[in-house]
């Protein structure tokens, strides 16, 4: 995806689409809270109220428009939900109770409805997280999680994972080149033991690197907490802006329940 200025290709930055919009500038923790709250309202909406999901979809399209994230970015990334979609598509074929005939195929109504529920709620959730990842650099996301009181240990582990994905990946690549340079070609199950031993060696190497990194951290005064390096201010305006989405979602969900009764 061409963008005005791309800042790199980290494991975490690859998903980020650099823009200067209000949504990009919101603090990460605000966006995380807004997204989770919105997803909850979507999940809580009765699946029979089809119109509600149409409105939810429009709301997310509006968010994408404000954040200037084009469909060409969002649609390909939605492929991650394909395995779940397959599951949802199977549901109408199994079940009990009332059936409908679609082009000569017998489908169960309950299964159809449940499949639709999984499909639409899942899709809305996926689009939400795509929007979050496209508007928030991975590093800010981690800072946001830290401010939301996610345990330091988990935040640190994730942050090291982002930092060292490339280093370990390079190492893996060098090992592959070394294997192939000595005539090894992965062909079928017979080559699995070799691959497995390589994986073991890679694990040991990464583990040893972990120890060396820890030494380097101790040498610079690490005491178990990463220091807060980026001073931040989250204003009430940030919260108000971000909460527009879940608040509107809540309104829709309540209306849907009211009609449902």
């Amino acid at each position: 995806m061409p963008s005005p200025h791309q800042h790199g290709h980290d494991a975490g930055e690859r998903l980020f689409v650099h823009r200067h919009t209000r949504i990009h500038s919101l603090p990460a923790e605000v966006k995380v809270v807004a997204m989770v709250a919105f997803i909850f309202t979507v999940i809580a909406t009765p699946i029979e109220q089809f119109w509600a999901f149409g409105v939810y979809a429009l709301m997310l399209i509006a968010v994408a428009a404000v954040a200037r994230i084009p469909a060409t970015v969002i649609l390909p990334r939605m492929l991650v939900e394909v395995p779940f979609v397959l599951f949802a598509l199977l549901m109408p074929f199994f079940g009990t109770g009332a059936t409908v005939n679609v082009f000569g195929v017998t489908l169960y109504q309950a299964g159809l409805l449940a499949g639709w529920g999984i499909l639409i709620k899942g899709t809305l959730g996926v689009v939400c997280s795509i929007l979050l990842a496209a508007t928030t650099p991975a590093r800010d996301l981690l800072l946001g999680l830290e401010r939301l009181k996610v345990p330091q240990l988990i935040v640190q582990i994730t942050s090291f994972m982002l930092r060292y994905t490339h280093v370990v990946g390079d190492e893996m690549n060098r090992m592959r080149v070394a294997r192939e340079s000595r005539g090894f070609h992965a062909t079928g199950i017979g080559s699995w033991p070799v691959i497995a031993r390589s994986a073991g060696a890679l694990f040991i190497r990464s583990y040893e690197r972990g120890e060396r990194v820890h030494l380097a951290m101790l040498s610079r005064g690490y005491t178990g907490r990463l220091p807060e390096l980026t001073p931040y201010t989250t204003t009430s305006a940030d919260w108000t802006t971000a909460m527009v989405l879940p608040a509107a979602g809540l309104l829709i969900a309540l209306t849907a329940w009211w009609i449902q009764k």
Binding site: R163, A216, M217, S219, G221, Y222, L226, P227
Partner: peptide
């Protein structure tokens, strides 16, 4: 005592150069 280890990938563990340099003094 400032030790510079042999493999810079062991020494540089923060997401950016800035944060890595800030790590020691911040501690």
């Amino acid at each position: 005592v400032g030790i510079v280890f042999q493999d810079p990938d062991d020494q540089l563990f923060m997401p950016t150069v800035h944060d890595d340099i800030a790590f020691g003094p911040a501690n």
